[in-house]
Structure formats: C-alpha cells, structure tokens
C-alpha cells in the first residue's frame, strides 16, 4: 500500500511554474530516489509534503495524501501531530539542523515531549538509545551544543532526531551533499540500517546516481519541474528511456578509462 501519494502536484511562484503536474507514490518500506539537477524542483516537492514551503510559493493544484489522508484537508492541529512523528526530515545543511544555542539532547527531548507522554527519565533513555543507534555513544554528545560536533556527527545526530519517533516516512533532502565521501557513505549506511530496523519508507533526494544505485528501490527523474521518467531502479539503470536520463548517466565520471571530456547535459535535449 502506498504510504505517500503525490497526485498532479503543481507549485507556483506567482506565475512561474516550479513543479508541474508531478505524480509519484511511495509504498511502505520503499526507498524512492528523486533525482535531478539543481533547480529541477526536487526540494520544493519535498518541502510541500511537510508543509514547509516558503510563503511565496503556493500549491495551485494536486493532492498530497499520506497514509490515506489528504494533507491539504487537514487542520493545522492534525497536521502538527503527523509532522515530526510520522513524517520527518533530514536536510542537506547539517549546521542549520539544530538551533545553535540549545543542547542536542534538549532538542531531541523537546521533540519527544511534544509527541509522546513519556516521563523525563524515559525520554532521556530513548534519546540516548537512538544516539547509540547512529553510533554516537557518548552521553557527552547528549550534553553538547551543535557547534561542538563535526559535520558527520551532526548529520548523524540529525538522523537520530528524525527517526527517534519511528516515522513512517523519512524525507532525506540531499543529506550527503555537504559531507565528505567517507561521512556520506556512513550516513547513508545508517539510513539504510535504520530503514531496515523500523520499516519506514524513504524519500531520498539526490543528484548522485552512485548513491541511487546502491540504496534505492525506485527512481524518479525530475527535470524542470516535471517527472520525466520513473520506475524500478533496475529498469531505469538498465534501460533508460528518456533522453535526459541517458544524459544523466553519461555525465557520471567513470573511474577507469577517463574520457578526455565529459558529456554536457544540454538545456533542451533533442
């Protein structure tokens, strides 16, 4: 059953169409990679699910349904109950993921306090155990301010906060773009492990096809606000149909037999 269905979603900024009639759905426990170049509307699509679109952007048509319920028909209160608990986010900018002057532990605690009825002791236990799950063992981390941790540590702590309530859908918006490749693979490995443990679906936004190949089940390719191709990873990787998809693959730098120059992705593919 589909946990998230996006149905003919169109998002405008005044008269400019940013996201154009986008359709896709994610089944329970599935890992969908939304791939496309910068500015193709991936992140805006993701923001619209959590209701965190910038004020200037408006959803002009389409439906987003989560777990069978239409998100646009929800009251603010119902929406608040779902956000953070059942839908959670990991962002690209790990430095901005935590409020700078509040200790990490207290920020995780705040989330638990909002959505659960656990006692103070239980909340701390839950926070420490989820930090352990992302390999941040120390209680010192719990008592640290965000600036005291490294980038990789912060991103893992952000993942810990995102999954502490066992969400049904984790939206990872380019979670590894700002990290070095070692930290990046560690972070993705963690997301994969936690997905296994909790059975949550993942909407993974990226422009790195190597990560897609390693982790995703389903792939949707976005270009200029439209989904141009989607399907299972195997079908897309083995038999890409759309020109843009082919160009994307051609643009991956190979490790061996480096060509003298890389292919360009043209603005208007023939």
């Amino acid at each position: 059953m589909a946990i998230l269905t996006i149905d003919h979603l169109t998002i405008n900024h005044e008269d400019t169409i940013l996201v154009n009639q986008v359709n896709f759905s994610i089944a329970e426990g599935e890992w969908l990679a939304l791939v496309g170049e910068s500015g193709s509307g991936k992140s805006i699509t993701a923001s619209s699910i959590g209701g965190i679109l910038p004020k200037e952007l408006k959803i002009v048509s389409g439906r987003i349904s989560f777990n069978g319920a239409d998100l646009s028909n929800m009251t603010e209160k119902e929406y608040r109950r779902i956000r953070g608990k059942e839908i959670s986010y990991v962002f690209q900018d790990y430095q901005g993921a935590f409020t700078p002057f509040i200790k990490l532990g207290n920020q995780i605690d705040e989330l638990l306090k909002t959505h659960t009825t656990l006692s103070k002791k239980e909340r701390k236990k839950a926070a420490l155990s989820i930090l352990k799950d992302v390999n941040l063992f120390d209680e010192r981390i719990y008592n640290s301010y965000p600036f005291q941790l490294s980038g990789g540590q912060l991103q893992r702590a952000a993942i810990a906060m995102a999954v502490v309530l066992k969400p049904k859908l984790l939206i990872a918006d380019e979670p590894t773009t700002a990290l070095d490749s070692m930290s990046a693979s560690r972070v993705l490995g963690l997301i994969a492990k936690l997905k296994q443990q909790m059975g949550c679906a993942v909407l993974f936004i990226t422009h790195d096809l190597r990560h897609v190949k390693k982790y995703a089940n389903q792939v949707a390719i976005m270009k200029q606000g439209k989904v141009v191709e989607q399907g299972s990873k195997e079908s897309i990787f083995e038999n890409p149909q759309h020109d843009y998809t082919k160009q994307l693959f051609a643009a991956i730098p190979p490790l061996r037999e480096t060509p003298s120059r890389l292919f360009m992705i043209s603005e208007n593919p023939a």
Binding site: I52, R81, G84, T99, E110
Partner: peptide, 26 residues
C-alpha cells in the same frame, strides 16, 4: 526564519509560540 532549524522545529510539531520563545527570542 529561513534557517533550517526553524523548519525542523516546525516539522517537529512545535507550536508557533514555542518556536518563537525557545528558538527565536534568544
């Protein structure tokens, strides 16, 4: 308001009053 931690606080389901008093006023 454009920083991600405010978005995170919103996603985490905090009320506007809490976001303002704990994450903004300082």
């Amino acid at each position: 308001n454009q920083k991600e931690y405010i978005a995170v606080a919103k996603i985490n389901g905090l009320s506007s009053i809490k976001i303002l008093s704990k994450h903004m006023i300082p």
